[in-house]
């Protein structure tokens, strides 16, 4: 079953994600895993161990966690958003330019998936509302909004602009994140994030959350420039710097211009 699942995962992945690489699409999963293992040994094993078993330092701190069972989705998220390979350990895994191309990420994902069963990379049909009718889409978006406000805004802010976590960590902004990566983050819970398993948030509910976030991006800024969507702190800053700045400037201007007249004095 597992091997069948893995085969299926790899197959779907090569079919969906890896469409440009025609040469690789014919390669079997074993070849992909082998290719991934080579990359893994070079780029990941220093922290995660040569077999993905994880490495602890002498005093018991985790350098790199074990990757057995994290699944292809975790790899696709971590490597695909540039978080891995890590530049340095710390409170927050920095988002950097992606170090691998799509084929290499697919190979790495296939290799890590082969270590133990875990969540697979979602198919586009999992997070897209393309197939729904207009009415269903609207319902999905408003349901997703409520799920988002219940489960996500406490860290990610009301419109996904991001928020602070302890000791320099942060819940990143979701405004640029691709739907696939959002779905994978919910599945795998990277960093300090909770994982929302399918029992917790059903696949449809995850899809709705993504649909809501995408709808926010497509939505016009009804009130004008959004000031970063960060809430009252930035609004207060704007009130003081822009609003009061303009008005005090106007006061200076008014006081600097005093009475003038072009009338001639009448002699009488």
């Amino acid at each position: 079953m597992i091997i069948a699942g893995l085969l299926l995962t790899g197959g779907i992945f090569t079919a969906v994600v890896n469409t440009t690489a025609q040469a690789d699409s014919t390669s079997s999963n074993e070849e992909l895993v082998a290719q991934g293992r080579d990359l893994f040994l070079v780029s990941c094993s220093f922290c995660h161990g040569q077999n993905g078993e994880g490495i602890r330092s002498e005093n018991g701190n985790q350098i790199g966690p074990p990757l057995v069972g994290v699944g292809a989705a975790a790899v696709d998220f971590q490597v695909g958003t540039g978080r891995m390979p890590l530049a340095q350990p710390g409170a927050q895994d920095q988002v950097k330019p992606v170090a691998f191309d799509d084929d290499e990420i697919a190979a790495l994902a296939a290799y890590v998936a082969s270590l133990g069963p875990g969540p697979a990379i979602p198919d586009e049909s999992d997070y897209s509302i393309e197939g729904l009718s207009d009415k269903e889409r609207e319902a999905a978006i408003s349901r997703g909004g409520q799920i988002f406000l219940t489960n996500c805004t406490a860290c990610h802010n009301f419109q996904g602009s991001g928020g602070a976590m302890p000791h320099g960590g942060k819940a990143p902004s979701l405004s640029e994140t691709s739907p696939r990566h959002i779905y994978e983050a919910m599945l795998t819970g990277p960093g300090q994030m909770d994982s929302f398993s399918n029992g917790n948030l059903s696949p449809d509910e995850k899809r709705d959350v993504i649909a809501y976030l995408v709808s926010l991006r497509d939505m016009p800024e009804y009130g004008g420039f959004g000031l970063g969507g960060l809430g009252p702190v930035v609004e207060g800053l704007a009130a003081w710097l822009v609003g009061l700045g303009l008005l005090v400037g106007a006061a200076v201007w008014i006081a600097a211009h005093t009475t003038r007249t072009s009338k001639k004095k009448v002699d009488a």
């Binding site: 406000l149 805004t153 860290c155 009301f158 928020g163 702190v233």
Partner: peptide, 27 residues
């Protein structure tokens, strides 16, 4: 007209079970 302030539609209706990061009062 130009600067958005308190976009309540993004906050959604109040529900004691919800909260958002960046919850601040006005300045």
């Amino acid at each position: 007209g130009l600067l958005s302030i308190n976009p309540v539609w993004k906050y959604g209706p109040y529900d004691p079970s919800k909260v958002t990061a960046g919850s601040q009062p006005d300045w």
